[in-house]
Design a protein around this nucleic acid. Structure first.
Length: 135
RNA sequence: CCAGACGGCUGGACGGUCGCCGCCAUCUUUUGAUGGGGGAGGAAAGUCCGGGCUCCACGAAAAAGCGGUGCCGGGUAACGCCCGGCGGGGGUGACCCCAGGGAAAGUGCCACAGAAAGCAAACCGCCUCGUUUCGGGGAUUUCGAUCUUCGCACGGGGUAAGGGUGAAAGGGUGCGGUAAGAGCGCACCGCGCGGCUGGUAACAGUCGCGGCACGGUAAACCCCACCGGGAGCAAAACCGAAUAGGGAUGGCGUGUUUGCGUGGCGCUUCGGUGCCGCGGAACAGGCGUGUUCGCGCUGCCAUCCGGGUAGGUUGCACGAGGCGUUCGGCAACGGACGCCCUAGAUGAAUGACCGUCUAUCGCCGCUAAAUAUGGGCCGUGGCGUGGACAGAACCCGGCUUACAGGCCGUCUGGCGCC
RNA sequence: CGGGGAGUGGCGCAGCCAGGUAGCGCAUCUGCUUUGGGAGCAGAGGGUCGGAGGUUCGAAUCCUCUCUCCCCGA
């Protein structure tokens, strides 16, 4: 089975964010901050085979970035970058949390993409090397 | 043309690729797929008022307390909002600003300065009268003194014109009047009271009288009038997993004791008492933990019930709704008729990226006019820059605050031309 | 959604309710003292009282609007 497109699941509970921040790895790029943690033990709501094909993703933008318009815009740009990069190049069965910074608003989209790839590499969360070699 | 006042509107456009959240239709077991259509604002903001809605409390309310509002009339579901007037203030003007009830109901305060800051008097000063052991001048003189006048001092009386101040000093200005003065008298202005006229009213005008008494501060306490029960969609209603705990029923299992409750049997002098069972309690025992003291649990299994957590659904978008025409009204607004349905998220959608154009700004040129030159304005070309404030969170009516730039209308002042 | 508090010299705070002088401690500077430093003594400088408007003769203080920060409850 080739490395297919992963399904993104949004993290929505405060407990998930706290768990990722407490237990995971962390890398700060100029345009964003990435936190990674292994996926939580599957509950009854999600099955094991679903865990293998999904990855959780959550966004955090604090009040320091700006007003509501700036915070929403930062989250939208991060979401666009994630939709572009993560399904093909991120390792599965992990939870990611992206934190927006002030530079997220002004950084160019290509640089933002490079920031995310570098953060994935630094946190050893890229997809398996054979998958990259096969492509 | 320049400067300004007021009111209203707008808040980048088009295209491409990839996405997000509801709705409708069809297919589909759930899931999902396809197609269609919709998807932020004038302030969505701040949360300063007024309501709807929901729950709670309450016999209806009233009073007290607390909070708020405060010229008059109108609009409105209501308002602290809006409209139109009145009064005061500012501006040459268009126009703008004002918490704008009551200070003879009471209390408080008015620093410094000043004689005095609130009951009006005291003080300095002014005027007048008197007295004397005072001093100067004049007159008379029997040279002892006497009379008179001025000044000082003291005492009595009359005054409030004046008294460096101060934000504010017991009406102001002028004339008369007086020993000196004073609303003491008069004229005008101000103030107060009463009448008349106009106006729904606030108020304005006018006439007469009073003769000045009544300082300011209520965004100081307060008084008067009016309004307000409390909380908020995380309100509230419904469904409801797992775990723990509660209750009921059944089965299995459980040592001792009982100043407890209860049932059965026996005795009874009918007050009780003996035995047995059940429940409760205590202890023992058991299990877990711990170095000790100690601490925690004490039934197990099955079925059912109720409360209720996470979570979910509803509340939730047809409403004091919008648009147009017309009628009434100066207007706010209201009536009638017609048309329309117009976001519904919940770690929170309504976008990300790219291209072209365009508003704006900067730089470099060109043309025309003018000029001694330079610079600026207008038009035009190229390059670069590049979209203000800001994101619905139950809904509505207001207020306040933020806002690049652009557009429209009405009006005012000034300059020039006809 | 609801409630509360704070903003005053470089720092930490009084003063506000009952309006007229902005004060205290630490810090800074100068001088004395000491061999020198510290401590002590004497003196000095330094504040648009977060911002705007209003009430008042007069506002840090009273009223309205606004900005920033902090805390609490559901």
């Amino acid at each position: 089975m080739k490395h297919g497109v992963l399904t993104l699941v949004r993290l929505k509970r405060r407990a998930d964010f706290l768990r990722v921040a407490r237990t995971g790895r962390r890398y700060a790029a100029p345009g964003l901050v990435l936190q990674v943690a292994p996926k939580a033990a599957p509950g009854l709501s999600c099955q094991v085979e679903e865990v293998e094909a999904t990855l959780g993703i959550g966004f955090t933008v604090s009040k320091k970035v700006g007003n509501a318009v700036a915070r929403n815009r930062a989250k939208r740009r991060l979401r666009a970058v994630v939709a572009d990069v993560m399904p093909g190049q991120a390792a599965a069965s992990r939870d990611f949390v992206l934190i927006g910074r002030k530079a997220t608003l002004r950084r160019s989209f290509a640089d933002l993409k490079q920031d995310l790839l570098k953060a994935l590499r630094q946190t050893k969360s890229l997809a398996a090397a054979d998958a990259r070699a096969a492509s």
